[in-house]
Simulated assay, not measured.
Amino acid sequence: MERRHFLRASVLGAGTIAFSGSLWQGAALAAPAQNAPGPYGALQAADANGIHLPAGFTSRVIARSGQAVPGTSYTWHNAPDGGACFADGSGWIYVSNSEINPGGGASAIRFDAGGNVTSAYRILSGTRTNCAGGKTPWNTWLSCEEVSRGFVYETYPFGGAAVQRPALGRFKHEAAAADPVRRVVYLTEDETDGRFYRFVPTTWGDLSSGTLQVLMAGSATSGSFTWADVPDPDGSPTATRSQVPGSKSFNGGEGCHYADGTVWFTTKGDNRVWQVGLTSGTYELAYDDSLVSPGTPPLTGVDNVTGSSSGDLFVAEDGGNMEICLITPDDKISPFLRINGQSASEITGPAFSPAGDRLYFSSQRGTSGSSSGGITYCVTGPFRS
């Protein structure tokens, strides 16, 4: 496989998707990632919450589906899924989708500077199967419906009525990632023959109009790519993924993350993490569970993805053995955490606080295996920067 240089950086600045902190550069590194000891060491015995973590890290439960968020009167939603953090003065807000149908929507929890909950509230209601989504540089949350001809809804964690954004296409949406340099939003599609899209707004910061495009490439796992316009983003009568001959098919698009000229996205049907070099116009695999050595692949059920200020990617499992795995900028993969006793669930919504010292995520169905059993956690510790 071709070797290239990639920079990975996190989106941790207040209300922006600009670059922050240190940037790591992979020095002619081979992809996909291979097994190696993790930068934080081995996982320790499970804590009181049933979570195995490296030494120096701790977990706590933030909210449970069907129960009031501690310190508030707001009842947390069922089946918590995709999430993101937004800086809010000296504190921050964590938003989370609800992957139920009907109902769906999204909620938010506000924290003070010490990480204490100060309020919780609804930011989107009356939608369907809101799975993942993405944060914008103008401090909105794009909540995506994972249903046939689903919509993207732009929501307002700081206040304001959510708005349907049909210009971003009607298909089985999964995740979104904003690119402030090229002024586009990347979108994944959760179909066995899904596509990878980008939306080019007419005016950056306004998603009411623009052009939906699809990635064009060959059938190989690496190579060059271009973009082509989707003639009918409404997707009827012809689905968006079937409108452009030569568009590249991906097996079950899931999470999506942008940082410093690269966008990563995952495909659950083949347990892969893809990386797209936006400056070079090339794509390749960052991870493939069939190509891992030595030993067995640590990451299966590949799903949501986020990044830290060090450039590490954190990839959550849907099933597997309920781990969040870490891929370093030098293409080494290892488990970062594992949840015990929740094999009928999936890990969703990983997102770092603005300071990068807290990682929020959910177990969508918790110990019960039911959407009403969701648990949202926070892990605190010495994340590298």
Rank of each mutant, 00 (worst) to 15 (best):
residue 347 I to T: 10
residue 352 F to A: 08
residue 352 F to M: 03
residue 293 S to D: 14
residue 325 C to H: 02
residue 331 D to G: 09
residue 322 M to W: 01
residue 308 S to G: 15
residue 331 D to S: 14
residue 293 S to M: 07
residue 346 E to I: 07
residue 304 N to H: 07
residue 326 L to Y: 00
residue 338 R to V: 04
residue 315 V to D: 03
residue 301 G to V: 05
residue 295 G to E: 03
residue 346 E to S: 15
residue 324 I to N: 05
residue 339 I to T: 13
residue 317 E to L: 02
residue 327 I to T: 07
residue 330 D to W: 03
residue 317 E to S: 12
residue 331 D to A: 14
residue 318 D to S: 10
residue 298 P to C: 04
residue 331 D to M: 13
residue 343 S to D: 15
residue 306 T to N: 13
residue 299 L to N: 13
residue 328 T to Y: 03
residue 353 S to I: 05
residue 353 S to F: 02
residue 328 T to L: 06
residue 336 F to Y: 11
residue 324 I to Q: 03
residue 293 S to V: 13
residue 297 P to R: 00
residue 343 S to R: 09
residue 326 L to A: 07
residue 323 E to H: 14
residue 337 L to E: 04
residue 312 D to K: 02
residue 345 S to M: 08
residue 348 T to G: 13
residue 320 G to V: 01
residue 319 G to E: 04
residue 322 M to R: 13
residue 313 L to P: 10
residue 352 F to V: 06
residue 309 S to W: 01
residue 350 P to S: 04
residue 337 L to P: 07
residue 306 T to L: 06
residue 308 S to W: 00
residue 341 G to M: 08
residue 305 V to R: 01
residue 296 T to Y: 06
residue 300 T to Q: 08
residue 346 E to Y: 02
residue 302 V to S: 12
residue 335 P to A: 11
residue 335 P to D: 09
residue 331 D to Y: 11
residue 350 P to Y: 02
residue 311 G to D: 05
residue 335 P to N: 08
residue 348 T to W: 00
residue 319 G to V: 05
residue 325 C to I: 05
residue 323 E to Y: 03
residue 339 I to Q: 14
residue 326 L to E: 15
residue 321 N to Q: 13
residue 295 G to A: 14
residue 331 D to K: 11
residue 333 I to R: 01
residue 332 K to D: 08
residue 340 N to A: 15
residue 348 T to C: 15
residue 328 T to M: 06
residue 294 P to E: 10
residue 293 S to T: 15
residue 333 I to Y: 01
residue 305 V to P: 08
residue 324 I to R: 00
residue 352 F to N: 05
residue 348 T to F: 02
residue 349 G to W: 00
residue 307 G to S: 14
residue 348 T to P: 10
residue 344 A to T: 12
residue 303 D to N: 12
residue 344 A to F: 06
